[in-house]
């Protein structure tokens, strides 16, 4: 079981769980939680795309200064994930607030009850 495969499988698993959660769960907070799971899954996926077996972190110190291109993993996905995690946090924070306020104002957190606008 290489690290690469583990990363891919776990990200897909989280993604799957999260997707099912947002499509099937009825409680707003559970949907928000499922979104966080899926978001984590995709972030792991992004990290995985940059993984190269046997290499070190992309910090260029004296030992690898000359051979950087073959000694470090890809720094770009890590940068993307940094941004993505923050965005995920921001969206989750907002989702949670909307979920809590909605359930308070409408008296229920059941998504099935929020079907007044339709057709």
């Amino acid at each position: 079981m290489s690290l690469s495969l583990v990363l891919l499988l776990s990200s897909m698993g989280l993604l799957l769980t999260g997707l099912v959660g947002i499509m099937a769960k009825k409680h707003l907070l559970r949907i928000a939680l499922a979104f966080t799971l899926a978001s984590t899954g995709v972030n792991i996926l992004l990290v995985w795309t940059g993984y190269l077996a046997g290499r070190k972190a992309p910090i260029i110190d004296a030992s690898i200064e000359e051979i950087a291109t073959v000694a470090v993993v890809d720094p770009v996905p890590q940068a993307l994930v940094l941004t993505s995690i923050v965005i995920g946090v921001a969206v989750s924070a907002l989702l949670v607030v909307v979920a809590v306020l909605t359930s308070r104002e409408l008296g229920t957190a059941d998504v099935r009850r929020m079907r007044n606008l339709k057709w």
């Binding site: 993604l15 999260g18 997707l19 947002i22 707003l28 949907i31 979104f35 899926a38 978001s39 995709v42 972030n43 996926l45 992004l46 993505s84 965005i87 995920g88 969206v91 907002l94 989702l95 909307v98 979920a99 306020l101 909605t102 104002e105 409408l106 998504v111 929020m114 079907r115 007044n116 606008l117």
Partner: peptide, 19 residues
């Protein structure tokens, strides 16, 4: 509230798919 929730759900899924 309903409108905001629906928009939030869609935005969430779009975020995942986009990534």
């Amino acid at each position: 509230w309903e409108a905001a929730v629906k928009l939030a759900l869609i935005s969430g899924l779009v975020t995942i798919l986009f990534l």
